[in-house]
Computed example of a mutant assay.
Amino acid sequence: MVKLSEIIRKSTGPRYQERPGLISEAFDIKKQKESLAELKKTYEDMVLHLMLIMDEIKEGKTVADRKIGSLAEIITDILRADNNMLLSLVHIFSYLGKQEDFLYAHSVNASILATNLGLASGYSRSELINLCVSSLVHDIGYLKLSQETINKPSKLTKDEYNQVKKHTIYGVELLSQIEGMPECAAEVVHQHHERVDGSGYPDRRRGDEISEYSKIVAIAEVYEAITHPRPYRREKIIPYQAVKTIVQEEKNSFAPEIIKVFLNSVSPYPPGSFVLLNSGAIGRVISVNKSLPLRPIVEIFFDASGKPPEEPMRIDLSKAPVVNIDKALDEDDL
């Protein structure tokens, strides 16, 4: 499998800087720490790799399809092997470096989430790679929007919002600078803001007028956006509340079959999130039990008295019937 570090070493410019401390120490078992550290570096490389590709497109250069394809293959293969750790990084990272670079982390995160939905839907490896490629470029049209509008720290005016909506049109135009893009990529770029009830844009398509990949990317990118801060919104919604919002408030916007897959593959208590147990202890979810997503494996951070445990302590809630999650917690409130 191609290593991103090898690709980036050949093309890294002055924008790249080592950024230590991007992820908190969440696991005490040595082997898992090493795996997480290695995956953290891979994740950072994914965001940097996409940033470099987008820089080339912004400069008007033609980009070889393998640059996107190799990134999609890495994401796909990691998810197929074990999706827990990569999904945990999605929930830990908002963006790398400067706030205005949120687009690149958003695109990588959305691609991980969308590809995971495709995996849960039974897609083949080639289908997953095409879905991942499409997800990585879904917001490419933002490159043609003004930085002032994208990074505005307050609510957009009507005119500004109408300009932002044009990114679905601009994106299709910019895809011509990437050689060999699959047809599904153009569909996703153009349709990922369409909604099955006809309330979306740019064409107010309904139901089956929207491609399946576009329906998947639509729910993935909305979930990613509301669980991470943005220039105009510093706060984020915790995963539990985000899942609830999508199911209760946005249920008419997304295809029922996609929502079902979403609920089965995106836990309201994903790896990396914090929970309060009925014992009074606070723990961090380290793994999701696929057959019982509401009863994950939790590592205790603070016991009922508010003190860190003397020894590492993990509880598999699927095997501890008397221990339950009282509520999800926001890490910022701890």
Rank of each mutant, 00 (worst) to 15 (best):
Glu250Lys: 15
Ala220Pro: 04
Thr245Lys: 15
Lys215Thr: 08
Lys251Thr: 09
Asp208Cys: 00
Arg234Met: 09
Val243Gly: 01
Asp208Ser: 03
Val243Lys: 09
Tyr232Thr: 11
Glu250Asp: 13
Gln241His: 13
Gln248Met: 14
Val217Met: 02
Glu224Arg: 08
Ile238Asn: 14
Tyr213Trp: 02
Val217Leu: 03
Ile216Glu: 01
Ser214Ala: 15
Val247Ser: 12
Glu221Thr: 13
Tyr240Glu: 14
Asp208Lys: 01
Thr227Ser: 03
Gln248Asp: 14
Ile226Lys: 03
Tyr213Asp: 05
Gln241Met: 11
Ala242Gly: 08
Glu235Thr: 13
Arg234Ile: 12
Arg234Asp: 13
Glu221His: 09
Ile216Asp: 00
Asn252Met: 08
Glu250Tyr: 11
Asp208Ile: 05
Glu235Asp: 13
Ile226Pro: 01
Ala242Asn: 12
Asn252Asp: 10
Glu212Val: 10
Ile210Leu: 06
Glu212Thr: 11
Gln248Arg: 15
Ile219Ser: 05
Tyr213Gly: 07
Arg230Lys: 14
Ile216Asn: 02
Glu235Asn: 14
Ala225Cys: 09
Tyr223Leu: 12
Ser211Arg: 06
Val247Thr: 02
Gln248Ile: 06
Arg233Gly: 00
Val247Ala: 14
Ser253Phe: 08
Lys215Glu: 10
Ile246Lys: 07
Thr227His: 03
Asn252Ala: 10
Ser214Asp: 08
Ala218Pro: 05
Lys251Asn: 13
Val247Gly: 02
Ile216Gly: 00
Ser214Arg: 04
Val247Leu: 12
Ile246Asn: 05
Asp208Leu: 01
Tyr213Lys: 05
Val243Cys: 12
Ile246Pro: 08
Lys236Val: 04
Lys236Gly: 04
Asp208Val: 00
Tyr232Val: 11
Pro229Gln: 09
His228Met: 07
Ile246Asp: 05
Lys244Trp: 07
Thr227Gly: 02
His228Tyr: 02
Val247Met: 11
Val222Gly: 01
His228Thr: 07
Tyr213Ser: 10
Arg233Trp: 04
Phe254Tyr: 15
Ser253Gln: 15
Ala220His: 04
Phe254Asn: 14
Glu235Ile: 10
Thr245Cys: 07
Ile216Arg: 00
Glu249Ile: 03
Pro229His: 10
Tyr213Val: 01
Arg230Pro: 07
Val222Ile: 09
His228Cys: 08
Ala218Met: 07
Val243Asn: 07
Gln241Arg: 13
